[in-house]
């Protein structure tokens, strides 16, 4: 299932773009993110805790930024191993459009799980993925908005 969303952010596109590439911002905004470490400008490792239905798992994995068209769009891709719980993969295509002083962020995201997560939690994957994606962009929106429209 593809999930899509749109946010209007009261900040200039450059500022939004910078935030989307800021590992500290990503850490704050990725739901359940305990740790994130930058390996290169486009690759990171992360530890994320997620609960999907009856299965709660700590995912160790990688985050990668690709298809970068600064400052207009990129794809953020994550993939993590949750031990005996299985694995989860997700990606989101993010585009930023200028609209006066504001920026319109649009995303299309997909998620995929495997192993025990798929067997026990498959009914809940779509709902959980949607919640995770929405929460991320909500957090991101809130983060930038609270910092003020000029980005501080």
């Amino acid at each position: 299932m593809d999930m899509t969303g749109q946010y209007r952010i009261g900040a200039a596109r450059d500022i939004v773009w910078a935030a989307l590439n800021d590992v500290e911002v990503l850490k704050l905004c990725i739901p359940g993110c305990e740790e994130i470490e930058q390996l290169s400008p486009t690759t990171m490792t992360a530890r994320v805790v997620q609960k999907i239905g009856p299965v709660k798992a700590r995912f160790e994995g990688n985050i990668e930024l690709l298809n970068i068209e600064a400052p207009a769009s990129y794809t953020i891709k994550g993939e993590g191993q949750g031990g005996v719980a299985g694995f989860a993969k997700g990606s989101a295509d993010v585009t930023l459009a200028e609209d006066g002083d504001e920026t319109v962020l649009e995303f299309t995201a997909q998620a995929q799980v495997g192993g025990k997560l798929a067997r026990l939690g498959s009914r809940l994957i779509d709902a959980t993925a949607k919640k995770v994606a929405t929460k991320f962009f909500d957090n991101f929106h809130t983060h930038l908005t609270e910092k003020g429209p000029t980005g501080g």
């Binding site: 799980v113 798929a118 067997r119 026990l120 498959s122």
Partner: peptide, 14 residues
């Protein structure tokens, strides 16, 4: 099974 081979009915809940 999902198209890529994940079993989606792996318990008596499904």
């Amino acid at each position: 099974y999902s198209d890529d081979g994940q079993l989606l009915t792996g318990s008596y809940m499904d």
